[in-house]
Simulated assay, not measured.
Amino acid sequence: MTGNSWERVPIDPQSVDAPLSQSAIFLVLRVADGPDALATVCSVLGGLDDLVKTVGFRDLSARLSCIAGIGSDLWDRLHPGGKPRELKPFAPIKGTAHDAPSTPGDLLFHIRAERADLCFEFERLLLAALDTAVEMIDEVTGFRYFDARDLLGFVDGTANPAGPDLSASALVGDEDGDFAGGSYIVVQKYLHDMAAWGRVPTPLQEEIIGRTKIDNVEIDDDAAPRKSHKSLATIVDEQGVEHDILRDNMPFGRAGHGEFGTYFIGYSRYLWVIEKMLERMYVGDPAGAYDRLLDFSTPRTGTTFFAPPRPMLEAIAQGTAGAPAAG
């Protein structure tokens, strides 16, 4: 097997590579017990593309898209015959100073568009179709903040892969050929202590993040006694190969309620890459030297999903996933 043999696998992924948008809605749902709920979910999953067309035709330039992710437990209910190699529930992390919780979730819908009203309309119709088959676990409406900054004031997502590197980083290849074109997804909802962060001098903020605040220039902290968020989130394997993930984080908030946050969503070819990134952030490298950003940003959720490629999503929707091919 060659290093780039994944490229020869015919795949039709969901819209993981959709451009970063101005608006987004993140829905995490639990699927009710019983066959009727499963049948409803399958029907909705099978009609997602049609629903995107129904809503999106109003303004094609708004680039409405939706990615469906399936959690480990629901995957077993929908498709008992096989499972992506690394798919499992989010593993909670006990850090040296901060913890990352694991929270429930069977379905993730990541809705994106350049217009908030299209995201809203899609969500409205989607939830109406799902009806009592699901229970809302979490609902977050995100927005693009100035020049792709988070509410802490720093540009977010600078290190995202682009071009051919995007697919190589975000989509499963022939290392798990039955699920090639799919993507592992990890979501975490972080709430920021803006008052505490505002008391930190800008030079120290930059040291914590690993980039300058105004012009977003990367800071070399290889020789520093304490690694930055940027360095701790950089994953290099034993062969010296750096592994990227695709982030589509979005700020969210309700100023009147004192709620300010970042919704982290990472797409990855390998789940272990995100797991290793989070381990380095919470445990530290070396152990104890955790990501100081966690002193100001607290995770409230943590859930793992798998976004199957379109043909597999359609097969799951039709109840034929895992069936032998005709002919």
Rank of each mutant, 00 (worst) to 15 (best):
G69I: 08
A18D: 05
A68H: 09
E314P: 02
T212P: 06
V155C: 09
L278W: 07
G47R: 02
R211M: 06
R280P: 00
R199L: 15
S21P: 14
G163Y: 07
V283A: 09
D193H: 06
R112N: 12
P286A: 13
L107I: 11
A62K: 10
A321F: 04
S183P: 03
L51I: 04
D174W: 11
S102A: 15
D99Y: 01
H98K: 15
D215K: 11
D17R: 10
L246V: 13
S183E: 06
R124G: 01
L48Q: 12
I274E: 05
M277E: 00
P309I: 03
D285Q: 11
G266M: 01
D222H: 08
S268L: 02
A162R: 15
A116C: 05
D76N: 07
D221G: 12
Q188V: 01
R115S: 12
W197F: 04
M277N: 01
L246T: 08
E279W: 08
R144G: 01
L152S: 14
A62V: 08
G288A: 02
T304Y: 06
D156K: 14
E279D: 12
P299A: 01
F109E: 06
R254W: 13
G240P: 11
L171K: 15
D222S: 13
S169V: 10
E279L: 12
P13G: 04
L166G: 12
R63Y: 01
V200H: 04
W75I: 06
V31Q: 03
I235W: 00
Y190V: 07
P299L: 03
Y190A: 10
E86F: 08
D178C: 02
G319C: 01
A289L: 03
Y270M: 07
V186C: 06
R63K: 15
P201A: 13
H110R: 06
S268P: 03
K88N: 13
G46N: 08
A129N: 09
V44P: 01
H192E: 05
F26I: 03
H229M: 04
M312P: 00
D295H: 12
R280K: 06
W272A: 14
A326V: 14
W75D: 06
D36C: 01
L313S: 12
A133Q: 02
S72D: 15
E135G: 06
G153T: 12
L45I: 15
K230E: 05
V52G: 11
G256M: 10
F143H: 02
T2F: 12
V217G: 04
G71V: 08
P225S: 11
D285Y: 05
G181Q: 03
I111K: 10
I93Q: 05
R226P: 00
G157W: 09
I67Q: 13
V187M: 07
M250D: 00
I70E: 05
A24I: 03
G163R: 04
L294M: 11
G34C: 09
I214E: 15
K94N: 05
G82C: 09
L127E: 08
W75E: 10
V186Q: 09
V186A: 08
F57G: 02
K213R: 15
G142N: 08
V41C: 13
L130P: 02
D176Y: 10
I316G: 00
K53M: 14
A62L: 04
L313N: 12
